[in-house]
Every structure is written in C-alpha cells, then in structure tokens.
Amino acid sequence: MTNKKKGNAFTNNPIVRAIGVQKIVVVVVLILLLVFFSVKSTSFWSYASLLSIMDYTYYLAFLGIGVTFCLITGGVDLSIGTGMFCYALAGGFLITKMDLPVIVGILVTLAMGIVVGLANGLIVSKGGHAPFLATLCTMMIVRGLGAIITGGSSITWPIAGTPEGWTRNLFKFTLPSGTKVPLGFLWVLLAAIIMSLFLNKTRPGRYIIAIGSNKEATRLSGINVAKYQTLAYLICGFFTGLAALAYSSAFQSMTPGGGGGVELNAIGGAIIGGTSMSGGSGTIAGTILGVFIMSILQTGLPKVGLQANYQQIIIGVVLLVAVYIDVLKNKKLS
C-alpha cells in the first residue's frame, strides 16, 4: 500500500525531515543576515561586537526556551519581559541594598520566577482564563511589584571585578590575558540540550506536546491535563528567572518598570524557529535559532545606522510576518 505523500521532493527528503524544514530556512535567513550586516558595517565582525551579540542572546535564549513550552501547549506567557526585570530587581535589591549574600539574591530571583510561573499555570489550567489575558495581568502585577520592592530606584548587580561580582564572570569570563570569553554560551547550550531532552524524551515533555496537539484526546487518554499545563508555565517562570540572572550579569542598571517588549522578541524568536502558536509543534533548537535572529537584528541594526526606533518597527513587522506564516502553515494542515 502506498502512503499518499504530502509535500514535495525537498520537504520529503529524509535529512530535511529529520532537521525540520523551517529550521533550515531559518539558518539560511540567519546566514543572509550575517552577510548583510558584515557587508554593511565594518565593525560587525569585531570581537567586541560578537560579545555584544552574545550578551543579548543569553537572556533572550532563556526566555525563548521557557516560552516555547507555553506556546507548545497552545498558550503563551506575556509576563516574561517585565517578569525578568522584576525578579532581577528583587534579587539585586537584596544583594546591593540589603547586603545579603549574592547566593541569596540568586535564589530569590529564581524562586520568584518559579512562583509566578506556577501562578500563571494555575490561573490558566484551573481558572480557565485565556493564557494571553492571564499572563497580561501577571505582567502588570510583576511590573508594579518590581518597582515597589526596590522602592522605585534602579538596581545594578555587583560589577565585574568586585568579590560579589562573580555572577558576571559566569557569563563573560575574563582571561588573565584580558580577553573576555562568552562563557554564557555554554550555559545556554547546556540548557538547550537539557530542555530538548526533557521535551522529547521524558513523559512530562511528551504530554506537554500532546496537550498542545489535541487537548481533548490527551485528556481521554487519562492524562492529567491541568498538571502538565501548569508545569509548562512553571518551566517558563523558572527560565524567566534564569534570564533575569543572565540579564543582570550582562548589563548594568535596570530600571523598574522596564522589560516591556522583550517578551515579543522571545515569542517572535520562538515562532520564527518553528514553534506554532496553535500548539503541538516546536523545538528548542529552532527557538534558539529564531532568538539568535532577533538578537542579531537588535545588535546589527544600530551598526548600520538604524537606531532603536527603527528596530522596533522592523521587529514588529518581522513578528507579523512570522505569525502570518504560522497561520498559513496551520491552514494548510487542515
């Protein structure tokens, strides 16, 4: 009996299938972008510039990994942007203003992420709220919370060189010779590998995909949908906490109330990388690639003379295009 093959020669090629069509397209786009920027800007390929790209990528990658889990269940988490700032502000506040040990600050940052993630998950799975609305509300709440905790003042995590500033070295290690090594890349890679394994090779990961694919069928198979849906948001919250650590280690001061807009970069990156808003599909690798495109845009555009405002317009348009392609993909499936 013959399988009615859908698609064409390219999409049916086994190697292409194994990697994923979208990822290949993304890599091509990535290469084109890199070529474009290196041609248009002489300073793009400088080591300092690459380090800068890395700084943007770390936190965005963690956010991307986290929100991918929500997207796969067919939901979304809009609180990751302001959340990242809030948790970093809280942790940093404890370290710099309350003179608590750095490790406490780190733990609090992560803990806050987990708690808010859990709250999001419960509101969505038990409360029945639409994910975008629920996480929109928590986005507002953590935005206010962050500012209240710090009393409105900006926070800077301890800088490199000071004894408390060791978190910075975690992400950018300065060798004795003076060169800085983008160590953070290792953590991102590690996280990506671990979460990819989690998603594809463990039961919770499998059930999260199943929920996004067909919630009712998953429920009928006897799986506790609420539990695994909540787990997805919890993971997202945890990674927002990690992103907070990455951000505070890479950048200087953080103003309360900031972070709005960052979530769209992360979500956009995930969608570009092949994660569908309708749920059921998505890979960690794809998200990392998509997020990479976003951070390259963010660092490259200024180098060709386009400031932040142009970036916003371009990223907005990129997001629209990515969503449209996603909508078309889904139309074709049904």
Binding site: I209, G212, S213, L220, S221, S281
Partner: peptide, 16 residues
C-alpha cells in the same frame, strides 16, 4: 479520530 497529530504513530499508540 481522536489522535495527536503532532506526535508519531508509536507515540500515539502508547500515549500514557
């Protein structure tokens, strides 16, 4: 059919 389109055949059969 009550199936999980995004998973593989084997994964569908043994879900849960």
């Amino acid at each position: 059919l009550n199936m999980l389109g995004h998973l593989t055949v084997a994964q569908n059969i043994f879900i849960g």
